[in-house]
Computed example of a mutant assay.
Amino acid sequence: MLPSISRRHALLFGLVGLLYLAVVLAILYDSPLVDLDWSLQQLRPYRQWPGALPYLDIWVIAGQRGPTAIAACLWLGWRCYRSHSARPLLVMGMALLLLNVTVGGVKILTGRLGPHYAHYVGSPELFSGGSIFPSGHTANAVVTWGVLAYLAIRWRRTGAALAALTAASIGLTTVYLGTHWISDVFAGWAAGALVLLSLPLAEPAVAALDRRVLAAWHREGRFARPAPAAPRPRPAA
């Protein structure tokens, strides 16, 4: 049975879902959003400040799943050890699984080519064997840094703001570098946000897995809390 969520949460989930669907339909039906894609691509912003390209390439790495997921999971593994709970890693694993399934599925279905491989000006470049829509960099940045904010014990609002700024800047940087259309980034933001909004619904499954993992670890003698020290005998008066 799914847990209950607030009306505000449900409304936000619905609005983000509609936004995601609107972007997908706008690409499929060759709307003015595709014209905006081409207008930005023809500006070739990466040629304006070529000296900044190496630094921007490094910054975009913060949106790649491999480096960010490894760094985040190392930190969350430490959190698991300190809290005697597998929940931090299980939440991240659940989020990355949802991300891979949902974003990967849309990438396969749309088959969109990126700006550097586009064939015809004004074409949405769909079903051409590409894998650019939605932006995986952007969606991964939303999910990875968003999960860290979701799991934060203190400074959660600050963490959420930093996660949002990081995801926004990484998405826009991919447009500047010419590796993504702006519509890819819009869809990536929405796709990542939907994964984050789905996490509260997955909490019962995470809790059940956490209990099983902890039971297995305790059977193997791991994560066992140290026994309290025996009281010292008082000296005779």
Rank of each mutant, 00 (worst) to 15 (best):
G159T: 02
A118H: 12
L18G: 04
D37P: 12
M92I: 02
W59G: 12
P32C: 06
Q48W: 14
V106R: 03
V16M: 05
L162Y: 08
R44D: 06
P88E: 04
D35C: 05
N100K: 04
L197Y: 09
L194W: 04
G66K: 00
S31F: 05
T166N: 07
P45E: 00
G221M: 10
R212H: 05
Y29W: 13
R8I: 05
A149I: 12
G129V: 14
L21T: 01
P45M: 12
R154Q: 13
H9W: 14
W75G: 13
L21G: 02
P67L: 03
W38G: 11
L33P: 06
R225M: 15
I153R: 14
A69M: 10
A227R: 15
T174M: 12
Y150V: 03
I5H: 00
A230P: 14
A224R: 15
L2A: 05
L96H: 04
G221K: 07
Q41F: 11
S31N: 11
V185G: 07
G111V: 10
D37H: 10
P67A: 06
A216E: 06
Y20E: 00
Q41V: 12
L28M: 09
S169D: 07
H9V: 03
I170K: 05
A229K: 15
Y176A: 06
I182G: 08
A160W: 15
P235W: 10
A26T: 03
L196Y: 07
P200Q: 10
A10Y: 06
V34W: 04
P226K: 14
Q42W: 06
P32G: 03
A118W: 09
P235E: 12
A164M: 09
L33N: 05
V23N: 00
P200R: 11
P235V: 09
W145F: 15
I132K: 11
R222P: 02
T102R: 02
L89W: 03
A191T: 07
G129Q: 13
V175A: 06
S183Q: 09
A163H: 05
L76T: 08
V60Y: 00
C73G: 10
L25C: 01
Y176Q: 07
T144P: 02
A86L: 03
S128V: 05
A215V: 06
R8W: 03
A236C: 09
R234L: 15
T173I: 13
R82M: 08
D210N: 07
A139M: 01
G14C: 08
A26R: 01
A69C: 00
G93Q: 03
G105K: 05
A227T: 14
L11Q: 11
A208K: 05
A141M: 11
L90K: 01
G66M: 02
I61T: 11
W75N: 05
V24A: 09
L194N: 01
W59Q: 05
P233N: 14
I182A: 14
C73S: 15
L99E: 08
A161D: 02
L15I: 13
S31H: 08
L196C: 09
T179G: 12
R156W: 02
T138I: 10
A168G: 05
R232Q: 15
Y176H: 13
R87E: 09
P200I: 10
